[in-house]
Design a protein around this nucleic acid. Structure first.
Ligand code: FES
Ligand code: FES
Lengths: 165, 165
DNA sequence: TTATACTGATACTAAATTAGTATCATTTAT
DNA sequence: ATAAATGATACTAATTTAGTATCAGTATAA
């Protein structure tokens, strides 16, 4: 049971980067490298975040993407909904075809209840909270000599995205 | 965000049918028709339930599948796990690569917490409970003249599964 | 004024998962 | 014998997710 798709996962990680650079424009390239997210994939994700008003962008050299909304006003649920649609909609058109099939109905009720819970939970996690957690985590880790909030793992998939023409 | 796949959905509906015929063997064909589930697809699902000990089967004419475990001992979570794998495993190998990427880590913690909740919730819904709900639902519905627990909707996909040879 | 470093828009391909179909062998009741 | 069933397993189709590529346009700065 996969909860988050890469889209969402990458989006949130990108937002976390932006959150640690509030006010500044950060380029897709930078984020991609720092987080090991495929560049072109990330581009599309950022454009989507833009369209949804979570970020704004500046074109041209030294351009990039910047957090637009307050981190405390960005909920993980919002991000999920952008990339994976509403948490609630287990294809049950509620009462459209009023419980034609009772067996499904009974099940659906339970699923809807649980979806409700999940939705609420994800609605309570804000970017702000994640940023705080991250800071704390880095703080304790730093005391034991570890280096910056950066990626070490996954050697970026991409071969060579020669963006030169 | 899809929570249950068809596999799981059909499985539970099939189990509900079996639950209303405890002790008796019901054939895949019957269940398929009653619930509008593609016959061959359902066959495989039932075989899986068999292998996992939720049901037993009898071959030959008048054969079929029968509920083996007590409905109260069958949890929706079990069924989900059979067909969709554990609810918990957001690809985070916990501490294998000890939080190489802090950004993911922070997120994962929250996801794991929510997965925990979902798992617990699905673990609390038993087939027994669903059967009770179903009975209640049918009871009230019957008072207002509706007919049996049967399917009216989805005209079964299948063309003609001529199983004759 | 040109090269460079960016984003916008959008089309495309590849991989993985989910959904559904088909076939043949075997068992059992009648 | 025949029909009605399951066991095992291979296959195809549809959908979703993941990732790549391309071109046009904009801002900076040498
Ligand atoms: S309320 Fe959705 S099927 Fe009955
Ligand atoms: S605990 Fe899973 S990434 Fe840190």
């Amino acid at each position: 049971m996969k909860v988050l798709t890469k889209n969402t996962d990458y989006a949130i990680r990108a937002l976390l980067v932006l959150g640690t650079h509030e006010g500044e424009y950060v380029s897709a390239r930078q984020i991609s490298q720092q987080q090991g997210i495929p560049y072109q994939f990330l581009r599309r994700i950022l454009q989507e975040l833009n369209k949804n008003g979570l970020t704004t962008s500046r074109e041209g050299a030294h351009g990039g993407v910047r957090l637009e909304k307050n981190p405390d006003a960005i909920r993980v649920r919002d991000v999920i909904e952008i990339f994976q649609g509403k948490v609630e909609l287990s294809e049950c058109m509620f009462r459209k075809q009023i419980c034609a099939n009772r067996a499904s109905c009974v099940l659906r009720h339970e699923i809807m209840r649980i979806e409700e819970i999940v939705s609420r939970e994800f609605g309570q996690i804000t970017l702000g909270k994640l940023l705080t957690d991250l800071t704390k985590l880095n703080a304790t880790a730093t005391m034991e000599h570890t280096d910056e909030f950066e990626i070490i793992n996954s050697g970026s998939h991409e071969k060579t995205d020669s963006n030169h023409r």
